[in-house]
Design a protein around this nucleic acid. Structure first.
Lengths: 115, 115
DNA sequence: TGCTCAGTACGATAACTCTCGTACTACGAG
DNA sequence: CTCGTAGTACGAGAGTTATCGTACTGAGCA
């Protein structure tokens, strides 16, 4: 199953025009979610939910992913038993140009990862 | 630094290097504060606290201004019986380039003021 | 001295959020 | 069919936040 075939299940998310600035800012104003977003911004591939090394329980992770999805920051798609996550970079850039980039850059800079 | 001699009364605020991204995002993720910041971004002059037409009580306003100041988003200076507020645009731009601009632009766009 | 205006301090309350553990569903592998 | 893996649902507890009203301080003015 190496083919694309991804959009098999749509998940509740706001349309591009429905993305609210406050919701996005609130979604990003949490250390766990900021880390997730920063990780997602790194790779162009989709990543499943448990692949992030954040020190929280599974159910907490579910909560954070829902917040991100409902704010319009990420998109979630079923793939087998997993749920693949990807940033809605283009949608965000269309609605709030430069916002995501500056946040991700700021996070990387202030968490001074060697990478 | 030739200059402005404004600091007649210093108010507790983080140094440029101490401004935390999450605190800034959290400060901006509130409708009242977003409106204040957007208003401040419009004028280059300093504005006193009660000059904003936000539908909240005086004490609530004090709370919001403290959140903004402690996050490093605004600076407050005494002037007579008033307290003048100004955006720390340069400090924010130095630490998180583009962030404030995109947030303000996004807020203006989405609050579709007939302006 | 006394009055007024700008803002603070202090509860108090209601709402929201982050976190967890446990129980549950859904899918795929064997 | 059975089992393991990925994720959800559902409380529940602890902490934070937004909001208010009332009482207070402090600067300027008459």
């Amino acid at each position: 199953m190496t083919e694309t075939h991804e959009a098999c299940a749509p998940f509740p998310e706001p349309a591009v025009g429905e993305i609210r600035l406050e919701a996005v800012l609130h979604a990003l104003a949490d250390p766990v979610r900021l880390r997730i977003v920063s990780s997602l911004a790194g790779c162009t591939d989709q990543v499943n939910c448990l692949a992030f090394d954040v020190p929280v329980a599974k159910s907490t992770l579910t909560h954070h992913f829902r917040v991100l999805r409902e704010a319009g920051v990420i998109r979630q798609v079923r793939r087998g038993t997993s749920k693949m996550n990807s940033l809605r970079s283009e949608d965000l850039a269309a609605r709030f140009p430069g916002l995501l980039d500056s946040v991700v850059a700021g996070h990387r800079a202030s968490s001074r990862y060697p990478l």
